[in-house]
Amino acid sequence: MSAPALLEVDGLFVHFEASRRPKPAVVHAVDGVSFRIPRGTTFGIVGESGSGKSTTAQAVMRLVPTTAGAIRLDGRNIIDLNGVALHEVRKSLQMIFQDPFSSLDPRRRAGNLIAEPIRLLEHRSKDETAARVDELLAAVGLQPSAASLFPHQFSGGQRQRLCIARALATAPALIVCDEAVSALDVAIQAQILNLLLRLQAERGLAYLFISHDLGVVQHMCDEIAVMYLGQIIEQAPNSAFFSRPHHPYTWSLMTAALPAGPLRQSLKKSYLATGEPPSPINPPNGCRFASRCPFVVTRCREEAPELVAIGTGHWVACHRHDEIDPPVFA
């Protein structure tokens, strides 16, 4: 690793105190996560609810306090920044949320909503701001007249466009997309994904793309990490990840996401995980997936596997990664 990547997350831990009495309980939301996002690329995190993918995103945005670890933006650790210094960082770090219905203030007009980040972070003149708002509306495919409308006058897809315009307002280098298209209809979802791809090509944006939808992730991401109960259990570049995944949990996710048909039917029996994830409060000592893994052996329950490299940029945390052949998905 020579030049620092745009974003480097190093040994990130986020723990929450769930209760103090009768006995202390700590939610291990994120437990030692590391990854790097080069400029202009898309890094995807997939996982089920409770896997810690959203908490990771929020920690990167400095929206939740981190327990340990480092988050470096252009080589500078932003974990202890606050006040003006944090504002400076937020210019290059923006976020799009899942629900465009609750992430926009219903009482403010679209133009005002887009101008807010410019006003707060960049201190430009009124005319400059207005010009920038027009330009941003055009960039996300909205009419200039939209500036005077309220959020409720837009459809879901248009609102998500507004959220994207807001995120673009300060010309960030990285946008965190937390399930940014999950709440949208499929036809609108395609429009928004295309918009994100176009903006990336035009502006050299990097995305941290959080999603539970493997199809979307395959389409959007250069590199993918799978999280389970707060840890990354597999990470690989797009082609390696989707051609030869190595973790049984990844197999389960892929089997569930396969298009309907005989292939899914036949793979389901051997590879689909049963049950549901254990609680992130005091997670199990061994491999965290052991309770649901179809290939579990005694060692898995006793000893936590480390991430090991099995190819260029391909990492997997499984004791049996070289014993079991991955299923043939295609």
């Binding site: 199809g215 797009n238 082609s239 989707f242 892929m254 996401a257 043939v328």
Partner: peptide, 11 residues
């Protein structure tokens, strides 16, 4: 318009 998962395919 739905990006369906295509394992093994170079997307």
């Amino acid at each position: 318009c739905v990006p369906h998962l295509q394992p093994g395919v170079m997307a």
